[in-house]
Design a protein around this nucleic acid. Sequence first.
DNA 1: AACAGTAGGACTAATTTAGTCCAGCTAGAC
DNA 2: GTCTAGCTGGACTAAATTAGTCCTACTGTT
Lengths: 145, 145
Amino acid sequence: MIKVNKKIEYGVLALLYLNSKEDKAASVREMASNCGVPEALLSKVMQSIKNVGYVSAVYGNHGGYKLTKTLEEINLLGITLALDGPIQVADCLKPGNDTCPAKQACTIVDPMNVLNQKIIELFQTTSLQQLSAQKELSVKEVTLL
Amino acid sequence: MIKVNKKIEYGVLALLYLNSKEDKAASVREMASNCGVPEALLSKVMQSIKNVGYVSAVYGNHGGYKLTKTLEEINLLGITLALDGPIQVADCLKPGNDTCPAKQACTIVDPMNVLNQKIIELFQTTSLQQLSAQKELSVKEVTLL
DNA sequence: AACAGTAGGACTAATTTAGTCCAGCTAGAC
DNA sequence: GTCTAGCTGGACTAAATTAGTCCTACTGTT
């Protein structure tokens, strides 16, 4: 099944929660209990998200994480890159992969590359803003975007 | 990692191979050895693809599978549906899923639904023809499509 | 100095995906 | 008619990935 993993789900949840706190920092504990996700895992997720600069960490007592970007500036590609590394929609696209048995007569590397590009493009053009703003719209309207 | 699974990769490979045989049937054995993929698995893949009508099976000696559609008529959504069932980009989108811990205050079902729709649309508009025709084009040109 | 919190490595458990095995059915070739 | 190549499909095993836990160290505010 083509799907986005839990880390990304949790990351999106947490960022949306942070956004609702405006300029205040929220600790991992607070975010985890509010979003209903495992604390230890969310901690890892936030570390990675911090590394791409979407949030900053505040150490010490009453510390936590703060958003450093607006929802418009955060897109799914960035989140995915932070939590999962580069998008490779098929194994044979991995750099240095020499194990592909169909290498010589391969008719699929390029096709999969096309798909890969399309997905990257989709993720890049999908901002958190875009995802979060849909709450009030019906699915039907959403598909017209 | 967001990726398409082996069954889909193998299915695309096999369908492109079948296309190259024009109207002749090819057995699973022939396809498997030409595409360099496991025979037993490809056999399952072809059965599923048959069930959505992209190919027909010819029984008996010198039998095999034949394409019943053109590459333009076959899209990634159909192949995915055949081999993987409906696309659900996040677990909380599964029908009847009541285990989501963040259910009551969930801010992510709709966002993930938006993404889901976008991916479905992308898969639906990506035909085999479109994928296979890119062989000669550079990746740069491809992204402009 | 105490405390609340982040940082991050190592590990285990759970789930999913990939792949195999085998017995049965189908129809064309002889 | 019977042989045989090949499709059908269920049950099973193995491999890989993903999810989640645990523990120790570091950081900075009060």
